[in-house]
């Protein structure tokens, strides 16, 4: 009996001290963590919004799609961005950020969260500039915050009324990348979710 009490007490004490330490770090890092998360979101929003954007505010969500309004320095709303998601990705959930002009044309598309296969599916999701080691060493490298991606850029400047895969001229189509068809379909699905939400907001 005494033995059990001693074991229980010692493990309880370890848990208590550990819990207290965690609570302390949690309180201390709570502010910075929220700032970091907010900064990550704002940084990616700025990439799909016009360069004049000075601030962004969260707008209402429609059908599970979050909208963000972009204001210029005079406070006028000049564009908006939407986060669409799809569960059709090769690795499941995928989140896509879409910038929209006031007349609902697509300004830019970028994938913020995905789980696609490196080198295959990521061809459809990653905007990655290839910098050369030798250029960096020579000091010639330039920073490109929004590198091109042929598939994601094929949505740009087209009205957000829904897209489909294919090469025929019927309706709005985008061309999938071979070897990354599933990932392309997931991006398309997420963009179409945004298009449907845009349609719903216009209908109101």
């Amino acid at each position: 009996m005494k033995e059990i009490l001693r074991l229980t007490l010692s493990i309880g004490l370890v848990c208590l001290i550990g819990g207290a330490a965690l609570a302390y770090v949690n309180v201390k890092t709570d502010g910075p963590r929220q700032e970091a998360a907010a900064k990550t979101l704002v940084d990616s929003l700025k990439l799909v919004l016009p360069p004049e954007t000075a601030s962004t505010t969260k707008a209402a969500s429609v059908d599970g799609v979050d909208f963000y309004d972009a204001q210029d320095s005079a406070g006028r709303t000049i564009a908006r961005a939407a986060v669409g998601s799809s569960s059709l990705g090769f690795g499941g959930e995928m989140k896509v950020l879409v910038g929209l002009s006031p007349d609902n044309r697509i300004l830019g598309v970028m994938v913020t969260e995905h789980n696609e296969t490196p080198g295959l599916g990521t061809k459809a999701t990653n905007r990655k500039a290839q910098k050369s080691l030798w250029d960096v060493l020579a000091g010639k490298a330039t920073e490109d915050a929004f590198p091109p991606n042929a598939y994601l850029d094929s949505f740009t400047d087209r009205p957000a009324t829904g897209f489909s895969l294919g090469s025929d001229s019927q309706g709005q189509t985008v061309q999938a990348i071979s070897g990354a068809t599933t990932s392309c379909k997931a991006v398309l699905d997420a963009v179409n979710a945004v298009c449907r939400a845009v349609h719903t907001t216009e209908g109101r």
Binding site: T29, P32, R33, T40
Partner: peptide
Amino acid sequence: PDKVRIPCYIVIIAVFVTIVEMLMAAYAPA
């Protein structure tokens, strides 16, 4: 005590891992 050392070690390790996770969420590059 020897008999409960493994659970105690696991708790200590888990505490450190959670601290690393929180610190990374707060200060590491996104």
